[in-house]
């Protein structure tokens, strides 16, 4: 099964008229609280979707359900596997789910310490996914890791240093490289610029935008920062109290918000 996982990007030219991921009526209850209510949407290959809202709006819960880390109370998530077959994530076995998570998907955490092994070298951090799918040639693993460090603008002389010696921005870029090395088709990002200061944020966003375009990645980005959504996403989903209250093309929604809540968000966060 491992052999079938290709690390090239050539096979992604496949038709984009079929959705890659379908969320259908996703809900999550915690006791009496509805963290997420009836969320449905379709994501197409190469499309970047931003999920925005205040903290507590349910966007992180939604992201966890979409990335198969949290079982929904109702509804389901379907994903089109590399063989073109649409599968219900809840029906995947754990082995299949884990394989998906480390090959065809990426997950960029807000805190890089959650997504990296802080005590092992950058090279091993990037190489781990390759070794997990059976790569067994040290030289090739290292060359690939080195190549990816360059792509995320990390000096390759730092390849043997552990990320705990890296700055915040470098850690985040390393986390991105670690995720992209197996050529995923879909990347989840949870507040990817969250802990970074403004100048570092701008550089990271630039990098993410060019990588996403270059690799034709689909991405789901959770953020409370509308500037991030504006810069990265094609489409936007505005959440409030667990519900999607407005959705549409990013520029349209941000320039001409329909809902009063969205208007409030836009005016308070994008004054400049």
């Amino acid at each position: 099964m491992l052999d079938r996982v290709s690390v090239s990007h050539d096979d992604k030219v496949a038709a984009t008229d079929q959705p890659l991921l379908i969320a259908d009526g996703l809900s999550k209850r915690y006791g009496r609280i509805d963290a997420c209510r009836g969320v449905s949407f379709e994501l197409y290959p190469g499309e970047v979707l931003a999920i925005v809202g205040e903290s507590g709006s349910g966007k992180s819960t939604l992201l966890q359900m979409l990335s198969a880390q949290l079982a929904p109370s109702a509804g389901r998530v379907s994903y089109r596997m590399r063989d073109g077959v649409l599968r219900d994530l809840a029906a995947l076995g754990e082995a299949e789910r884990r394989l998906l998570l480390r090959t065809d998907w990426g997950f960029v955490h807000q805190d890089p310490a959650q997504g990296l092994r802080m005590a092992v070298s950058a090279g091993a951090n990037v190489g781990e996914r390759l070794m997990a799918i059976g790569w067994n040639h040290y030289g090739r693993i290292r060359d690939t890791a080195s190549d990816w460090l360059q792509r995320v603008e990390i000096d390759t002389s730092r390849i043997d240093d552990a990320p705990r010696t890296y700055s915040g921005g470098m850690r985040q870029r390393l986390q991105i490289a670690r995720n992209l090395v197996t050529g995923p088709r879909l990347v989840f990002m949870d507040e990817p610029t969250g802990g970074l200061d403004v100048s570092v944020q701008a550089r990271l966003l630039d990098l993410v935008r060019s990588l996403v375009t270059e690799l034709g990645l689909a991405a789901i980005v959770v953020t409370h920062d509308l500037a991030v959504a504006r810069l990265l996403s094609h489409r936007i989903l505005v959440m409030k109290s667990g519900r999607v209250i407005e959705t549409g093309l990013t520029d349209q929604v941000l320039d001409d918000p329909r809902e009063p809540y969205t208007q409030l968000l836009v005016s308070s966060i994008l004054p400049a």
Partner: peptide
């Protein structure tokens, strides 16, 4: 994979 990470290191 984790075992190979150790050998890589």
């Amino acid at each position: 994979g984790l075992m190979h990470v150790k050998l890589y290191e």
